[in-house]
């Protein structure tokens, strides 16, 4: 019991450190300097940090019924900060940037980690499949849009993001397929 507690504390600590690292001046500036690193390094650090905390908290209490709403809340909070208007706003205004960080850790990361830990295999598969499809659609949109969506970034950076998202979609697809076919995919033993 004692060792489990330490482990949980350590995980919460690591989550907080990840999120804080993405916000501290040297790294934050570097990550926000490029569209790809802003969305695919800083965002995942913030959301992932929150998710580690959320998943650890979920060990303390079994509440399966909260899984779908928590996963939906986390997803919507992520999508909100992917709207080009708010990406630009976060770069233009420190207060908005602070709101973004708090939102991605607490409203996106925490519920995603909590919800994933509470979710059963059907819900997890549903979320994974949808995330894969959305990554592909977002990547394709970035590549197909001839105009700049963010005033703060170049068109070439938008293309880089599109390619990176498509790569992620393929990786997510491979991971999902592997899990479905190589894991315990057979009929449960009664």
């Amino acid at each position: 019991m004692r060792s489990w507690l330490l482990k949980a504390e350590a995980r919460i600590g690591v989550g907080a450190v990840l999120a804080a690292a993405a916000l501290l001046p040297p790294l934050a500036g570097l990550l926000e300097g490029q569209l790809v690193t802003h969305l695919l390094c800083q965002y995942p650090l913030l959301v992932g940090g929150g998710a580690m905390i959320g998943a650890t908290l979920a060990l303390t209490r079994l509440a399966n019924w909260t899984a779908p709403s928590a996963l939906l809340a986390g997803t919507l909070a992520c999508v909100f900060w992917l709207v080009p208007r708010w990406i630009d706003a976060a770069l233009a205004d420190q207060a908005v940037n602070a709101a973004k960080a708090v939102c991605l850790v607490i409203l996106a990361g925490l519920p995603l980690g909590w919800g994933w830990a509470q979710a059963g295999p059907v819900l997890r598969g549903f979320v994974w499949a949808n995330a894969t499809a959305m990554l592909a659609v977002m990547g394709w949109l970035q590549l197909a849009t001839p105009i700049r969506l963010c005033n703060s970034y170049l068109l070439s950076e938008q293309r880089d993001l599109g390619l990176a998202l498509l790569t992620l979609a393929i990786l997510a697809l491979i991971a999902g397929m592997s899990r479905a076919m190589l894991g315990q995919w057979g009929r449960p033993i009664q």
Partner: peptide, 29 residues
């Protein structure tokens, strides 16, 4: 209650997006 909570979250999310994009009119800055 899982369904109810999800509907509530979806409603809040829709409201946030409505506010954040001027009713869907302003997706870009």
């Amino acid at each position: 209650r899982a369904a109810l909570a999800t509907v509530v979250v979806a409603g809040l999310g829709a409201a946030a997006f409505w506010w954040g994009t001027e009713g869907g009119m302003a997706l870009t800055s």
